[in-house]
Amino acid sequence: MKLFSDENKAAFSSPLNLNNPVTVQVLGICSALAVTSQLKPAIIMGLSVTVITAMANLVISLLRKTIPNRIRIIVQLVVVAALVTIVSQLLKAFVYDVSVQLSVYVGLIITNCILMGRLEAFAMQNGPWASTLDGIGNGLGYAWVLVAVGFVRELFGSGKLFDFQVIPDSWYAANGGWYMNNGMMVMPAMSLIIVGCVIWAHRSLNKEEK
């Protein structure tokens, strides 16, 4: 068996662009909006979701022949909840400040629709290796949207990237310059509008391929 057959490659790469979970399938929006006021929590959230999706897909795909059809939702929820608990404890242990910033949104990965959607639609029908790839692909597809939104919001909202000042201090109006941060960007409302614009750009770029 080849490591990357054509189907496996497709399972990995299509969610990155054409089948993106956030911009095309509209899954997992809640956390995509809430954690993106800065770049660092956005990246950590994206990575956590990638790891959890990949692991959950792998576990469910291994169990798929033994799970009775009627209770599959409960089984999936329990597997996901266990994984999220592990990730949440790891975040608390190694990056405590980010885990405080993410607050309830780490727990809310359990109810992230990307997970349930992929488990139902892919892992229940496919083998473990393909499912893992599909999970990583979807997680990364989700992560790049988060990073894009986080980049715009942190750069224009506070003039920083990863907490480093990017815009020179002398530009600011307070120091006699002309520049002011857009305080609107760090407000929750703005993330909705930026995600709307990302979807707009993404769809108009992909118009020909549809």
Binding site: A189, I199, W200
Partner: peptide
């Protein structure tokens, strides 16, 4: 506009509603 239809414009609408609620 065509690419904005459906989801895109809905997001922007919700964003404006959120601003009102602020």
């Amino acid at each position: 506009p065509k690419p904005l239809q459906g989801l895109g414009i809905t997001f922007i609408t919700v964003g404006l509603m959120a601003m009102a609620f602020m």
